[in-house]
Nucleic acid binder design. Structure first.
Lengths: 154, 154
DNA sequence: GGATATTGCTCAGTATGCTGACTATCAGTA
DNA sequence: TACTGATAGTCAGCATACTGAGCAATATCC
């Protein structure tokens, strides 16, 4: 019988579980209340002002049905705004608020610290190699999930 | 600004997202209806007959509040049984049913195939290295999540 | 121009995962 | 034995993720 530790699927789940826990702990200790998912969405909105929800979802590989709730919570916290697009009445344009910008800036050290902590068992070189291999495996499997990564349409 | 692709947390989420999608697709195509989480739980129950829920949770690093629902669904599908322990009236002893054993056996090829597919972008050597690095990072972070991996008490 | 296909978004439903609280039970000790 | 603390399991509540369905609007093709 194959051991769990030989199953990439199990290792993926476990690493992600730890990554989320570390993120929430670091951010929480710094006095903030933002999930990894909300952070990535907010940072991407800031970097691409006026983008619509589908584009945002593609940029961070979230399912479009998931992004609705995530944005709901960002809006409710006053960190982002959702307004109807003038060009396409189906779409919503997203923007970060000043409050959101402030929060992103103040939270940055905790986020960086979290990324370090989740690799703390590895040397710098090993950490790089792990990220390289993950990127490579992810690129090959991108189309296999319902929410693949997509470039922004310019 | 740091790219998502340089954040181990993002890569972790993405890899695990693909891993789950691949698992569900392979198992579903083979005509079965079992999630990765349910599969791991069932396989572990089979390997440790009579174990209680907390022990099971520790062996696969699930939260004890999550395992309740997972077992509910395994029981409902007729794949596992939950009965009160004779030694400890708080605990429930878990066992796999004949049906569960049959299902596990028939599903094995799809599970193995899924593990292969989620590494398909990597050479055999790279796949091994990825698993080694994940194991190492996970070992160092084991205590950081609410549901750490635990050895069975013998 | 009008039928058709596609797209942006939302919703209901289900399955993980977690926090925090609670009950019942057990174990150790005064 | 009575008290105290720890443990097994469950529950309510919240946040991701996904499936599948549906609505409104846009794009495409004849």
């Amino acid at each position: 019988m194959k051991d769990n530790n030989d199953m990439p699927g199990h290792l993926a789940r476990r690493f992600q579980q730890i990554a989320v826990a570390v993120f929430l702990a670091e951010v929480g200790d710094a006095g903030f209340d933002l999930t990894p998912v909300q952070y990535a969405a907010l940072a991407t909105i800031k970097a691409n002002p006026g983008l619509d929800q589908v584009t945002l979802a593609g940029l961070i590989a979230y399912d479009r049905t998931t992004i609705t709730g995530v944005i709901d919570r960002l809006v409710q916290k006053g960190l982002a705004e959702r307004r109807p697009s003038s060009r396409d009445r189906r779409a919503r344009e997203l923007a970060i608020t000043d409050e959101g910008r402030r929060k992103l800036r103040k939270i940055a050290p905790a986020v960086e610290s979290a990324q370090r902590i989740m690799l703390r068992g590895l040397s710098a070189k090993e950490g790089e190699e792990l990220m390289r291999l993950l990127r490579k495996a992810i690129a090959a499997g991108n189309e296999l999930s319902r929410a693949p990564l997509r470039d922004a349409q310019v």
